[in-house]
Simulated scan of single mutants.
Amino acid sequence: MAIPDLRERLFAAAERVVARDGAAALTSRAVTAEADCGKGVLHTHFAGLDEFVAELVLDRFARSARQAEELEARVGQGSVAANVQEVALALLESLPPAVVGLAMTRPAATLHTREGLRSGAPAFDAIQGSFTGYLQAEQRGGRIAEGADTATIALALVGTLHHLLMTRVPGESEDAEKTTERLVAVLLDAARQPPAA
């Protein structure tokens, strides 16, 4: 019998297992038990746990890329910093640190993730493009200084978020909201439009 949204159900179950019991507890049986599915369901849809972990990571990156695309609709609304920070925070919280660690320490999962990214799966490049497009639109609207290097601001923002996402330690990470707030403030400070004389 087909299970609606099975992939998302398994992915969400895996995140709960890792959050509650740690990365070492992530097995195909633990995931299917948490998802209340048959024991063999994961292996019916994925070649194994490594492919499953990689697909989870790729799915969360794609979800973050879709959220970044929503910046376009916010041009001219709210504050630039608040708009950027909301998407930056969503990216930083897109994956639990333990799942990121799993994907980086399981060679087959790492390889599958890289292959997915090379084949065009949306991830950091797409997110960077969305940030750049948003900042350029705000620049055209006069909310960012004319001479600000929006492409470099977007690169620095996404690069730093990537670093934070990949290096956070479970249970020891600094408050993500405060970190992104400081990051966005520093990066946008030089880009602020000076007040009219």
Rank of each mutant, 00 (worst) to 15 (best):
F11S: 08
T110D: 10
D50V: 02
E70I: 00
M166F: 13
V53D: 03
E115A: 12
A65C: 03
A109H: 08
T32P: 08
L135N: 02
V186M: 12
P122S: 07
A2D: 05
V84P: 00
A82H: 11
R66V: 11
E93N: 13
G147H: 10
S94M: 10
N83M: 01
A103S: 15
A108D: 15
T32C: 15
T150A: 15
T179P: 02
R140T: 10
F124Y: 15
T152F: 08
D125P: 06
D59R: 14
A90Y: 07
R66Y: 00
P170D: 06
E172A: 14
G147F: 05
R140I: 01
S28D: 15
F46Y: 15
E55Q: 14
T105S: 15
T132V: 04
H162G: 04
E70F: 00
R182T: 06
L91V: 13
A196G: 09
A65L: 02
F124R: 11
G78H: 10
L49N: 04
L49V: 09
D5L: 13
F52M: 04
A12P: 01
Q67G: 09
P96W: 03
P122M: 06
A145F: 02
V169P: 00
A121V: 04
Q136N: 12
A81P: 06
D36G: 13
E138K: 07
R66W: 00
R143W: 01
A109I: 07
R20T: 14
T44M: 11
A23M: 02
A82K: 13
A33C: 08
N83T: 03
A123I: 08
P97L: 09
E8M: 09
E70M: 12
G120C: 08
R118V: 03
T32M: 08
V87H: 04
E8H: 12
A137T: 03
A19G: 13
A90L: 03
V84A: 08
N83Y: 02
K178H: 12
P170R: 03
D36T: 08
D36M: 09
F52R: 04
L187S: 05
G116W: 05
P107R: 11
A103P: 03
A24G: 11
M166H: 14
